[in-house]
């Protein structure tokens, strides 16, 4: 489903060139659950942004569902990403001016889903994640765990093929973190491909495969033992 072939990404800041990803090759099959780990600054987030088609590699190939998207312009990437990739973040990235329902509906706003169906899908997703009763609340009125569940609802409501999660439990206490991990597990079991960046070895162990990054290179892969 996803394939990176000798992908490189560099950032230039004045006279300093930082190689965030260095000649990486990685293949992810549909329905896989992968954890990406590594120290700060190793390139995890850059890898995630390339996988999510938010950024383009400077060199190498990036194949998504059979198409090499490296070098595509923003509009084409946007088109491909819409409805195919979902995101969840460490700091949730919910919009404070919008209610919980509106935040979730945001993911469908730019799709072709009719308004009525949008409302139904949002309501179903919120109920599914146990936060339907909070639909009219503002994000700041929710706990951290509830906010992350809203973010997950938003990521899943357009039924993406891939879910990219950047430190999804980073801002949560262990109980709420565990709850989020359980939800991700269920999502994966339902067939969604998940790529999760995490610092937590325990959470990484919940994935089927772990990819370790050091200084922009893949340090090695460990086949996880299926539970």
């Amino acid at each position: 489903m996803i394939k990176l072939v000798r992908t490189t990404k560099k950032f230039v800041g004045g006279e300093v060139v930082t190689t965030a990803l260095n000649d990486i090759s990685l293949e992810i099959a549909a329905g896989e659950y992968i954890a990406v780990t590594g120290p700060s600054g190793c390139g995890k987030s850059t890898l995630l942004s390339i996988l999510g088609m938010l950024d383009s590699p400077d060199a190498g190939e990036y194949w998504f569902e059979g198409q090499d998207v490296a070098g595509w312009n923003e509009a084409k990437l946007n088109e491909l990403r819409r409805g195919r990739v979902g995101f969840i973040f460490q700091n949730f990235n919910l919009i404070e001016e919008l209610s919980v329902r509106e935040n979730v509906e945001l993911a469908l706003e730019y799709s072709d889903v009719p308004a009525r169906e949008r409302r139904e899908r949002v309501a179903q997703m919120l109920d599914h994640l146990g936060i339907g009763h909070r639909a009219r609340h503002r994000p700041s009125q929710l706990s951290g765990g509830q906010q992350q569940r809203v973010a997950i609802a938003r990521a899943l409501v357009n039924r993406p093929a891939v879910l990219l999660a950047d430190e999804p439990t980073g801002n949560l206490d262990s109980a709420h973190g565990e709850e989020v991990m359980r939800i991700l597990q269920q999502i994966n079991e339902a067939g969604t491909t998940i790529v999760m960046v995490t610092h937590s070895p325990a959470h990484a162990a919940r994935a089927a495969r772990t990819v370790g990054l050091i200084d922009g290179r893949i340090a090695g892969t460990a086949e996880a033992v299926a539970a």
């Binding site: 946007n78 409805g83 990235n93 706003e109 730019y110």
Partner: peptide, 16 residues
């Protein structure tokens, strides 16, 4: 900024 980025993330076009 954050809201715009999120909207773009979920497929908003420049015109949107």
């Amino acid at each position: 900024t954050a809201a715009i980025a999120m909207r773009k993330l979920f497929g908003a076009r420049r015109l949107d």
